[in-house]
Design a protein around this nucleic acid. Structure first.
Lengths: 183, 183
DNA sequence: TTAAATCTTGACAAAAGAGTCAGGTATACC
DNA sequence: GGTATACCTGACTCTTTTGTCAAGATTTAA
């Protein structure tokens, strides 16, 4: 532990450190889902509309929606009057499910045979540190928190104004922590 | 919030969701730093040694150490008897500092003018949602937690056996949460 | 039956990230 | 001085990710 331990978040963040990536597919795909969530219950939304509202090309939106459709989160209707719609209520779709269906691979570390440890094996077939790794606890801790949080938030939770949504998060973040401690 | 809210972590993680990336540079660079940390106080460590211990090519290790040297985390000595060493005590180098110096760009969201919002602007110059974004709270919440955690852990904290290190993390994770709630 | 609107698909091009290579510079030791 | 060891650097290649394109299939409606 370092002497900085007592510095409040705002100070720590002010340093501008930037770490851990969200891919374009995850970000833009989630935004498309939010458009569909806001449209839930109405006529299907056409890709041109989403494209305009998100500042993305129609073709790209199409590609993202295809990924989401294949994950059964979205349904499509062809032809005139066609378009896209969520395949179920936005309350029952977590952002974890959305992000996962959009990410090729990513961070998740729970054990030595996890994707992360297999992926970063250097020139060898197996990571040198499989049997004991000083760094794994870093990613394990972050993974737990991240997936815990993402599984607790639904698309419906993101549909309000930003201030309200932020409130939801503060509440859920506390719940997640409480949950973690029980285990 | 979804009905899954009460499911313990292990169940949530078992689904195998994989989200948010750690780049190769971050992972391997951090490992090199850990090698240097374990060698702290002794003769400088040559890149060949690190290369062998990590299963990476010498050239690649060299490249990573160059990034770390430019961030003033590492010092190098040329010539016979040369090598690399931490530029200061492993207790005073946080993994946040390490990761940051290794990452080209990544997730950090604290406001509308953050890197994240500038980066994901689609075809336009500015993100459509700058004035109010339902998704930003997701990344803001994760960013806070991640950078909070990374700034509280030092290289020295990672030098022990994996089980011990995991213990440190459980302790620090709780502290971070407590800290967040004060604000 | 034809036209218009819209989704479907796979191939492709552009950009970013990962990792290698070759030629150069500094230091220690004989 | 000469030689061996080791760092320094930028250019280059390979792979993955991002985003576009073109040709096809389905549905509605006139």
């Amino acid at each position: 532990m370092t002497k900085e331990s007592g510095i409040p978040n705002m100070d720590r963040l002010a340093k501008g450190e930037e770490v851990m990536k969200v891919t374009a597919q995850e970000e833009y795909g989630l935004r498309c889902m939010l458009q569909l969530a806001r449209n839930f219950g109405r006529e299907p939304l056409v890709s041109r509309m989403i494209s305009e509202q998100e500042g993305l090309s129609i073709d790209y939106v199409t590609k993202l929606l295809m990924l989401l459709r294949r994950a059964n989160l979205v349904e499509s209707v062809r032809g005139t009057k066609g378009g896209y719609a969520l395949s179920r209520d936005p309350h029952s779709i977590t952002i974890g499910q959305v992000i996962q269906s959009l990410s090729t691979e990513g961070l998740i570390v729970t054990s030595a045979d996890s994707h992360h440890c297999n992926h970063f094996s250097g020139q060898l077939d197996e990571c040198v540190h499989l049997e004991g790794c000083g760094i794994r606890p870093v990613w394990v801790t972050l993974s737990k928190y991240i997936s815990g949080l993402l599984e607790q938030i639904s698309l419906a939770d993101l549909m309000g104004e930003e201030v309200e949504v932020m409130g939801v998060f503060e509440h859920v973040a506390n719940e997640t922590e409480a949950l973690d401690k029980q285990i």
